[in-house]
Design a protein around this nucleic acid. Structure first.
Lengths: 186, 186
DNA sequence: CACTTGAGTATACGCATGTTTACTAGCCGC
DNA sequence: GCGGCTAGTAAACATGCGTATACTCAAGTG
């Protein structure tokens, strides 16, 4: 029904670019870099394939642009140092059940192994997650401790993706809190 | 030099099949399912491409065969329950530095997200790692506790692959021991 | 030694991908 | 209102992939 309701969209470079970026954000987060085709992104953005190349140079460039636009995790790391393990635990517990709401980790969880985007993913993981966490830690081995805590977060996501989601129980949150406490203890 | 030393190999279906399997084991472990082409496997095995299809049906079939041939991790899970966290910690600490010697986790670490092989990878992770560990645990929540410990192992590998290897220190092993203790505590 | 079997080979098929190339047509300044 | 810049389009290109086909020829058997 309604054969030709495709009312013309005003030509707007910036808006189109943003639609593509948004579509890529969603799809990369849901399926990972390799599984998502440029055609699928263009279709989801209701834009022409060639525009992806025009505005972002390449698929890898688009991916990098997606990462750049993502928010950081500063809300996780700010606040009382004492409560940090529990905040991380609650975050990780969510990750047992759902993919991240914010696509950045969702995207990084996957995708990070493709040679073309590995560097961008690594850089982003360091600057947005690992670095800020390390900076909030006092005491020795801050680097190693931050790394271990982030490893746990990554591992929770890996488990969900591989084996399947699991509803976190209050006991899980307690356990995770103890785990992060062990990770971060100085 | 020596332009034609290619002395004929005796025709041996089983040996050729095994060469392909071994090459696939190595390459999948090093690079992951998607990065490895059937042509590369055949070349590494010094066999013809068509033989891969002939002996294993498809690339996914070859991957499944690789997984089947891998040893389990029973040595990690047998032995004193008291020492289990430290054994896991030592294993995980190695994983901070090196890819697994046994290609199975190396292969599962990667590859596990490709739709064609996700099911096989999942099944193998459960039957070879998650199940045995859960079986050794007593007390409540054995499932959740095993899952959490394996998540940490997976996360350590993910961190190494994404950010880079790190030489584990004795302090790291201690920290990991505490982490696994927290994971497995009943 | 003929003959059959099947391991191994060379090559091509079909397809999906990322990317590029010409082309079309809407918007804006004069 | 018209001309040029450029957003947007359609189509093709080049490539690499997994897979399938038709063939060759070594080895074992009578």
């Amino acid at each position: 029904m309604n054969p030709q309701v495709t009312e013309a969209r005003p030509r707007d470079r910036e808006a189109t670019r943003e639609r593509i970026l948004q579509a890529a954000r969603t799809l990369f987060g849901e399926q990972g870099y390799e599984q998502v085709t440029v055609r699928a992104i263009a279709a989801a953005a209701d834009a022409n394939i060639a525009l992806v190349g025009r505005y972002f140079g390449s698929k890898a460039g688009l991916f990098a642009a997606v990462l750049q636009g993502e928010p950081t995790f500063s809300e996780l790391f700010t606040g009382s140092r004492e409560e940090l393990p529990r905040r991380l635990a609650e975050y990780a517990a969510q990750r047992m059940r759902h993919p991240p709401d914010s696509p950045i980790l969702r995207t990084l969880e996957r995708s990070a192994y493709h040679p073309e985007v590995a560097a961008a993913a690594r850089e982003r993981l360091i600057s947005a997650v690992l670095g800020p966490l390390e900076a909030t830690l006092s005491g020795p081995d801050a680097h190693a401790r931050a790394r271990m805590a982030v490893s746990v977060v990554l591992g929770i996501g890996a488990m969900r993706r591989r084996v399947g989601p699991e509803e976190p129980t209050p006991a899980d949150v307690d356990r995770l809190t103890a785990v992060f406490r062990a990770c971060l203890a100085d």
